[in-house]
Nucleic acid binder design. Structure first.
Lengths: 340, 340
DNA sequence: CCGGGTTGTGTTAACGCTCACAGTTCTTGC
DNA sequence: GCAAGAACTGTGAGCGTTAACACAACCCGG
């Protein structure tokens, strides 16, 4: 089409030339600056889509010092919890006009989280969300680049950073009280891995309710969140079926493992043993029996954390650090019933 | 600490000044350029971590025209499939030294995908991966910005772009043949939503095997991937339990719904009805009974798509478009058995 | 009909880096 | 001991945008 064989994508100057204005006027049109004559504006617009011009946000970021990109550091986004949290974060960020750059760690440790934060900082993100469910990872937040707005999600931390999380202790209390309220003498607990903050919180809530009610606190069983580990715990519990009448399991996947083990061993749920899970994954409602569980609102967690982060970014002074807690919700289904 | 109260983060020039070299030498050190004296290198390095300098990748991207960032467009990354695919993509990208910027669509349509691609292009990504499981979304790839390297994942497309996907047709053939091989007269199918390419492929494979074997092709049932829709299909099938002895369900979540419905209706699996799922989610092994299913290797899909994309980015000429297919794997478990 | 404010537009200089090239210093062989 | 080349280092320009300022054209009341 004529002599225009330039393969280089058009830049602002090209648009300016075609529209017969200066590049700065083009910039003003693009940024909705008020002082542009309507006629000029349309002329520029026409030139823009005639050339198929797209502005270069990299150049813009260089001068404004704002990339409108947020960094997210997470761990194994294959799991329902992290995946949902990250999804919530991404949605909230985009609604606010921000991009999201994700680093999903394979193994989670302080060095890994630190590296990830470093990469993101170099890349020029305006702020960072760290989904730091493990104690060791949460500690990496101590050495954030100075002045980098950040927020921790599901991380326990008393340091220099705001935290948004679901109230794990309360969730565990809900689960345990429910079981006690049904008349069970005590409640067993299959917890998550020791280093996880969520596992810790759930364990704490469970223990607290039992202690307050003056009940015996049974030995703790520990899994790794996987259905398989729940299955193993289930085999163990089935062997002492007489003693056990109620189990609070730290997540729904492990609860499924328990269910499977109990089925194999001929232990009836809920007739012989009642089970409460945690998370309310989409599958739980269709387990056999449907699982009584504690729902976490991951979407809310994502939105709240972006709120906090953007407030930090958009204010110039450092803001006081907040601790936001999202309440969990009890969901009664078929896996729990009164003691014999 | 002395007069150094500059709050602005250090730049290359600052490092250069402190090390007593030119900014260009600092750049050379940072980029592992060979021709730098060892002594100079260490002097620069010392200056770098004395100042806590981090290079500004935005400025670098502006001049090199490469951001080392890849864009990913996906849909509802809360689901196991998309989440796993995106995870695989992110891992592979990071291993290759690239960042990943994600846009996770709420609803999937051509306009949405187009917008997302537009945003990513402005942001200066070097290439784009589109996880486009729906026909309408896949079509958005027709109007990619010219010269933008791209690859479609799980997308059927005969156009101008490379595609990486799991062989859905083959997976469905595996499932259906297994059931037929067990002696079932025919196999029913609960498919995914009509517009989904995966649903289509699975349906096609199922139909093909049945036709080739000269069997009756039963009416198709359609779900929406959710356990609930599987539950509804299950209720329907249970009502005609006499006729139905084998069902191939288009994903594991719906299969769980079927299982639940059958349990409620007193239909025994696999004694009365055999079920095969698709995906092999981590839970499937612990369903009651454990689910026979078709495993998709999402990690491999992610790696392959990044391979293809990087080859496009790193070569200068446009490469021929490829069609890479990852084989599915049959996983036999307890939900299938021979016909009466 | 002329000064002072508003409105619209252009000019120039950054932003922090890499590239191309121009120097400078060090080797090396004869 | 000196030319020729290799090894190392410095200089200047430019990537595409926005910010800051300068300037022209217009409006209005006295």
């Amino acid at each position: 089409m004529g002599p225009n064989v330039e393969r280089r994508p058009p830049v602002m100057a090209d648009v300016a030339r075609l529209a017969g204005v200066s590049h700065q006027t083009v910039s003003r049109v693009l940024n909705d600056h008020p002082n542009v004559r309507a006629e000029t504006r349309t002329r520029v617009m026409r030139a823009i889509d005639q050339l198929g011009y797209r502005r270069n946000l990299v150049a813009r970021a260089l001068v404004t010092k704002h990339s409108r990109t947020l960094g997210v550091v997470s761990f194994d986004t294959t799991l329902y919890g992290p995946a949902s949290t990250v999804y919530g974060i991404e949605q909230a960020a985009r609604d606010a006009g921000y991009f999201v750059s994700i680093v999903s760690l394979r193994t989670i440790d302080r060095a890994g989280v630190n590296d990830a934060i470093g990469y993101l900082a170099e890349q020029g993100v305006d702020g960072i969300v760290v989904v730091a469910p493990q104690r060791s990872a949460a500690r990496a937040l101590d050495d954030l680049p100075a002045g980098m707005p950040a927020v921790a999600v599901e991380g326990w931390h008393q340091g220099d950073v705001s935290v948004v999380s679901v109230d794990q202790v309360e969730g565990a209390r809900l689960a345990t009280s429910h079981l006690l309220g049904l008349g069970h003498e005590t409640v067993w607990h299959v917890s998550g891995p020791a280093d996880w903050l969520e596992a810790e919180g759930r364990c704490e809530g469970w223990r607290a309710v039992l202690t307050e009610a003056g009940r015996r606190v049974p030995d703790l069983l520990t899994g790794d969140w996987s259905p398989r580990s729940g299955y193993q715990a289930g085999k163990h519990l089935a062997a002492m079926a007489g003693d056990v009448t109620a189990v609070f399991v730290a997540n729904d996947q492990m609860a499924l493992g328990l269910l499977r083990a109990f089925t194999e061993e001929g232990v009836k749920v809920p007739e012989q043993i009642s089970i409460v899970g945690f998370d309310d994954i989409p599958e739980s409602e269709f387990f056999s029996p449907p699982l009584t569980t504690i729902r976490q609102d991951f979407g809310a967690v994502g939105r709240r954390s972006i709120d906090v982060l953007l407030r930090q970014i958009e204010s110039n002074e450092p803001l006081p650090h907040e601790r936001l807690v999202v309440p969990p919700q009890f969901v009664r289904r078929g896996s729990t019933t009164g003691a014999r």
